[in-house]
Design a protein around this nucleic acid. Structure first.
Length: 191
DNA sequence: GCAATGATTTACT
DNA sequence: GTAAATCATTGCC
């Protein structure tokens, strides 16, 4: 069942990041592809690792201030597109980064998009490549029919791992926040 | 206009 | 384990 807007608007961003584990991410751009979310990270205007830290409002971050339920896609290291889900109410800049999925639908297409590599979506840049997500999806409503989330299996609390976020060492004390969530023992989380 | 720098991946030693 | 690839965004001049 497709998640409605209310899911993205209510609740703490860290709780949402955790709840997204086990749900299904669908992308339909000419071909339908989907996977189970197995790794996420939370970002908030309250901490330094976030692009919109301290309500920093630029052309890029403006999308994070929108109402929850839209996609925030941006380019990292000039090469990779990273896919985030904007959460919370309009004016509150928070988002969940999707870091890894377990391929479920359209695996052959995803593998082909990844250059035949069987390591399909174990990382934020890999996942967008496999699903065909690019910057043109920035601002896409997840309540529409191009990208959406469906409720999946509930991941048992005991199977949810928690750690510091990846690649945010520059964020000083906020780099220590344990805002990364992943499914324990899953071979599909990032390396 | 210009220089600095990543919410990464890949290939190599 | 380490390093190169590679460019949009940002902030400052």
């Amino acid at each position: 069942m497709k998640l409605g807007k209310e899911f993205y608007i209510n609740g703490e961003v860290t709780d949402l990041a955790k709840e997204l584990l086990g749900k299904y991410l669908y992308v339909n751009n000419s071909v339908l592809t989907a996977g189970k979310i197995v790794e996420t990270e939370a970002y908030s205007y309250k901490e330094k690792a976030c692009h919109a830290y301290n309500n920093r409002f630029t052309k890029r971050t403006s999308i994070m201030f929108e109402e929850g339920g839209v996609a925030y896609v941006y380019t990292c290291y000039g090469i990779h597109s990273l896919f985030n889900i904007v959460t919370n109410k309009k004016g509150i800049a928070e988002a969940v980064l999707i870091r890894a999925i377990e391929p479920m639908v359209g695996q052959e297409v995803m593998k082909h998009r990844r250059g035949g590599n069987s390591d399909i979506a174990s990382g934020p840049g890999k996942l967008t490549q496999a699903l065909g997500i690019s910057k043109k999806h920035n601002g896409t409503f997840l309540t529409e029919k191009e990208i959406w989330i469906e409720s999946g299996i509930k991941v048992d609390d005991e199977l949810i791992g928690r750690s510091k976020r990846i690649g945010v060492d520059y964020a000083e004390e906020d780099a220590k926040l344990e805002w990364r969530f992943f499914v324990k023992n899953s071979p599909f989380v990032s390396h």
